[in-house]
């Protein structure tokens, strides 16, 4: 009798163990990067404040290099602005062209809206990494906004927002996909991350008709819904033909240092939002 009770007691722990593992495995099998981002967005309402204060401490140490980069960027923009001012002064002589230019220019300018945010949490040691930003819905951050560094290198896109925080799908997530091309060449390839180095991503399916050299710049192709055409991804580091010898597999050295991000710029494609709303309206009317 005693042995029987002892046996049931042993079995009881084993049964409970199997039950917990079954539930957890089932949940893990169903979870995707999307559910993960949803849970993270909720968790941030609890842990966000502390994350932020810890990250500001770390941020303090990168201030110097960041300032240098910003100063450089300001100088670059200053230069471009002078060119525009010059052009404007020339066109001002002709009021007719000015009026015509105003409307077209405004339309093209308003396609992208920019806001800034600070990274408060950034993991790089997993195959499904995420970045948390200190801006959320109440600051105008929307799902699907592009995230780039202050000098215009690709980081990722916004996957999920809460009121005050947002979760970014970075390039360093094996689920990340976008489309890229070699600067100055119209052929495009598919960009993804194989999870082996935080400084490299891979471009596959790039046609063999594409002409480029090691060190060439790789940019966003504009075919992806998230990134404006021309956002810098990185530089060609090495290439090889794929198994069927039909296309190139290219190793790309990232332009952004994903291991030390602090301030980022968010870009909203207002046209995309409009197209998306239109598609949704069309879908719901049927």
């Amino acid at each position: 009798m005693y042995k029987l009770i002892e046996f049931i007691r042993r079995i009881y722990v084993v049964l409970l163990f199997i039950l917990i593992e079954a539930i957890a495995l089932n949940y893990y099998a169903r979870s995707s990067f999307y559910t993960q981002a949803k849970i993270l967005a909720h968790a941030n309402s609890v842990t966000g404040a502390l994350q932020q204060s810890i990250f500001s401490l770390r941020h303090y140490f990168t201030l110097r290099s960041e300032n240098e980069m910003l100063a450089q960027r300001v100088a670059e923009l200053e230069n471009t602005l002078t060119i525009y001012r010059e052009q404007e002064r020339q066109t001002q002589t002709d009021t007719l062209t000015m009026a015509a230019m105003d409307s077209t220019m405004l339309a093209s300018l308003s396609q992208y809206r920019y806001t800034t945010a600070r990274v408060i949490s950034n993991t790089i040691n997993s195959s499904h990494n995420f970045i948390t930003l200190n801006r959320g819905r109440q600051h105008g951050v929307l799902v699907d906004m592009a995230v780039v560094t202050p000098d215009g290198a690709m980081v990722g896109y916004v996957l999920e927002c809460s009121e005050r925080y947002s979760i970014v799908m970075p390039m360093l997530n094996t689920e990340f996909r976008t489309s890229g091309k070699i600067s100055g060449d119209e052929h495009f390839g598919s960009i993804s991350w194989d999870g082996t180095s935080p400084h490299r991503v891979q471009m596959s399916e790039l046609t063999k008709y594409s002409e480029f050299e090691i060190g060439d710049e790789v940019i966003a192709s504009g075919l992806s819904q998230y990134f404006p055409e021309g956002v810098r991804i990185g530089y060609v580091e090495s290439l090889k033909e794929n198994e069927n010898h039909t296309s190139y597999d290219v190793e790309i050295r990232l332009a952004a240092d994903m291991t030390r991000l602090s301030n980022v710029i968010l870009i909203e494609n207002t046209n995309y939002t409009e197209i998306y709303e239109l598609e949704n309206a069309a879908r719901s009317s049927h």
């Binding site: 495995l25 893990y28 979870s31 559910t35 993960q36 849970i39 993270l40 968790a43």
Partner: peptide, 10 residues
């Protein structure tokens, strides 16, 4: 807290 769906529990 990390959004890993059940991995740490397992």
């Amino acid at each position: 807290l990390t959004g890993m769906g059940g991995l740490n529990v397992i």
